[in-house]
C-alpha cells in the first residue's frame, strides 16, 4: 500500500511539475537566484579569506642582531621563540645570507654596491623573521623579546639584539587586525541578510504557486484524498524544483569560475577561482543541493498545510 501511494504521489508530483511548465520555471528561476547568492557568498568568502591570508603573511616582526653576534645565542633565542604558542614560524637569515640578499636586491644600483665594497666588512647582522599565527599576537611577541633581554646578552655583556622593528610595524599591524575583524563581521552580516531575503522571496514564490492550486486542493479533499496524498505531489514538485535549480547553479558556477579565471585572473591577486571551486566542490555541492531540496520541500509543505486546515 505504501509503495503504491509513494509511486502515485511521485508520479503525480512529476506530472504537476511538467504540466505547469511556466509556473515551475518561475519557481526554478527564483530559487536559482537564491542559490546563486549563496554560492557567490561561499566563493567570495573563500576569496576574502585568501586575500586576508596573503596580507597576513606579508606582516612579520624582524629581530636584527648586531654584527658578530654568536650563532649559538641566536639559535637559543630562535628556540625559545618557537616554543611560544603565538608564533607560527621563525626564519633565520645569517649575516652572509642577508648580505647576499641585499646585493641581489640592489644589483642595478652601482653606487650602493660600491659603498658596500668600500666598507670591506659585512655591515649586516643576522636576522630572525618571526611570523605570528594572528596579527594581533605580535604585541605579545614584542613584549616577550623585551622581557628576555637578559637572555640575549652575549658573553661580553652587550646586547646581541640591535633592533626589533615591531614599533614601526605596530601601526600597520593594528590597522590590519582591525580591518580583518570588521571585514569578517560585515561579511557575515551581509551574507545573513542576503540569504534571508532570498529565502523569503523563494518561499513566497512557492507559496504563490500553491495558492494558484488552492481550488485543486479543495477538489482533492472533496474526492476524499487524505492530507498526505494532497501534500505529497506538491512536495515532490518542490523537491524537483530544488534539485533542478541546484544542479543548474552548480553547472553555471563551474562555467563562471572557469571563464573568470581564464580572462580576469589578474583581478584576483593570484586567487584561482576555478581551482577553489573544484577543490571545495563537495562542500559547495552539499550546501547548495541540500539548501535547494530543503527549501523546496519545506516551502511546499508549509504552503499546502495552510489550505488543509479545517
Amino acid at each position: 500500500m505504501f509503495g503504491i501511494s509513494a509511486k502515485r504521489i511521485f508520479r503525480s508530483g512529476m506530472q504537476n511539475f511538467f504540466r505547469n511548465g511556466i509556473v515551475s520555471l518561475s519557481s526554478i528561476l527564483v530559487m536559482s537566484i537564491t542559490l546563486f547568492i549563496m554560492t557567490s557568498i561561499i566563493i567570495l568568502g573563500g576569496f576574502l579569506n585568501y586575500s586576508l591570508n596573503q596580507v597576513r603573511n606579508k606582516v612579520d616582526v624582524n629581530v636584527y642582531f648586531v654584527t658578530g653576534a654568536a650563532d649559538t645565542d641566536i639559535f637559543s633565542l630562535q628556540k625559545s621563540l618557537e616554543a611560544l604558542p603565538e608564533v607560527s614560524s621563525v626564519q633565520y637569515v645569517s649575516s652572509d645570507q642577508a648580505l647576499a640578499d641585499f646585493k641581489s636586491k640592489h644589483q642595478n644600483d652601482e653606487l650602493t654596491l660600491q659603498a658596500l665594497d668600500e666598507l670591506g666588512d659585512n655591515p649586516l647582522g643576522a636576522v630572525l623573521n618571526i611570523k605570528a599565527k594572528d596579527p594581533s599576537q605580535y604585541a605579545g611577541i614584542a613584549t616577550f623579546l623585551d622581557n628576555t633581554e637578559s637572555q640575549t646578552l652575549s658573553e661580553g655583556g652587550t646586547n646581541i639584539i640591535d633592533t626589533v622593528n615591531y614599533a614601526q610595524n605596530k601601526v600597520v599591524i593594528d590597522r590590519l587586525s582591525g580591518i580583518i575583524k570588521s571585514v569578517n563581521i560585515i561579511g557575515i552580516w551581509f551574507a545573513i541578510i542576503f540569504v534571508l531575503v532570498s529565502l523569503i522571496v523563494t518561499f513566497n514564490t512557492i507559496r504563490l504557486t500553491i495558492f494558484m492550486a488552492k481550488d485543486e486542493i479543495s477538489v482533492m479533499r472533496l474526492v476524499g484524498a487524505s492530507n498526505s496524498y494532497i501534500k505529497g505531489p506538491f512536495i515532490v514538485s518542490g523537491l524537483l524544483c530544488g534539485i533542478i535549480s541546484s544542479i543548474l547553479i552548480l553547472i553555471i558556477f563551474a562555467a563562471i569560475t572557469f571563464v573568470v579565471n581564464h580572462y580576469y585572473n589578474s583581478y584576483f591577486v593570484g586567487f584561482d577561482l576555478f581551482q577553489y571551486y573544484i577543490a571545495n566542490f563537495l562542500e559547495i555541492f552539499a550546501i547548495i543541493f541540500g539548501s535547494g531540496i530543503i527549501l523546496g520541500c519545506i516551502s511546499s509543505y508549509l504552503a499546502v498545510q495552510k489550505y488543509l486546515k479545517g
Binding site: M1, V223, G224
Partner: peptide, 11 residues
Amino acid sequence: SFAMEMSGRDD
C-alpha cells in the same frame, strides 16, 4: 483514476 487512487484501489 485520481479518485480511485485516493481510495487505495490497485492499478
